[in-house]
C-alpha cells in the first residue's frame, strides 16, 4: 500500500517537475526534456494504476501495460523527432 502511494507520489512529482521545467525554460532543449519528464511521470502513473489489482492479489492490468508500451514508443519517436528538428535548427542558426 505504501509503495503504491510512493509510486503515485513519484509520478505526480515527476509531472510536477516536468511542468515546472516547461514553464520556466525558454530553451527548446530544456522544454523537450521537461516534456519527457512529464511523459515519464504519466507512464509511471499508469504503471502504478496497473499495479492496483496486484494489491488485491489479482494479476496486474495488462491493458495499461500495453498502453504504456505504446505510449513509450510514441514518446520516444516524438522526442527523437523533436531533437532532430532542434539539431537542424541549431546547425542552421550557426
Amino acid at each position: 500500500m505504501l509503495s503504491f502511494y510512493l509510486y503515485l507520489g513519484t509520478a505526480v512529482l515527476l509531472v510536477g517537475i516536468g511542468g515546472l521545467g516547461l514553464w520556466r525554460g525558454p530553451e527548446l532543449l530544456r522544454r523537450i526534456l521537461a516534456l519527457n519528464v512529464i511523459g515519464a511521470g504519466i507512464f509511471m502513473l499508469m504503471v502504478t494504476l496497473a499495479y492496483r489489482p496486484v494489491m488485491q492479489g489479482e494479476p496486474a492490468d495488462s491493458v495499461l501495460h500495453a498502453l504504456v508500451l505504446t505510449g513509450l514508443v510514441v514518446a520516444v519517436s516524438a522526442t527523437a523527432f523533436a531533437l532532430a528538428l532542434l539539431g537542424r535548427l541549431l546547425t542552421r542558426a550557426d
Binding site: 509531472v15 516547461l22 527548446l28 522544454r31 523537450i32 516534456l35 512529464i38 511523459g39 504519466i42 502513473l45 499508469m46 494504476l49 505510449g71 510514441v74 516524438a78 523527432f81 523533436a82 528538428l85 532542434l86 537542424r88 535548427l89 542552421r92
Partner: peptide, 24 residues
C-alpha cells in the same frame, strides 16, 4: 519553418501528454 514547426511539436506533445494524463 523549423522554428514554428518545433514550437508546434512541443505544444502538440504537451497537449498529448495532458490528454494522456486525463485518459489515465
Amino acid at each position: 519553418a523549423l522554428k514554428p514547426a518545433l514550437n508546434y511539436l512541443l505544444f502538440s506533445l504537451f497537449a498529448s501528454l495532458c490528454y494522456l494524463l486525463g485518459v489515465a
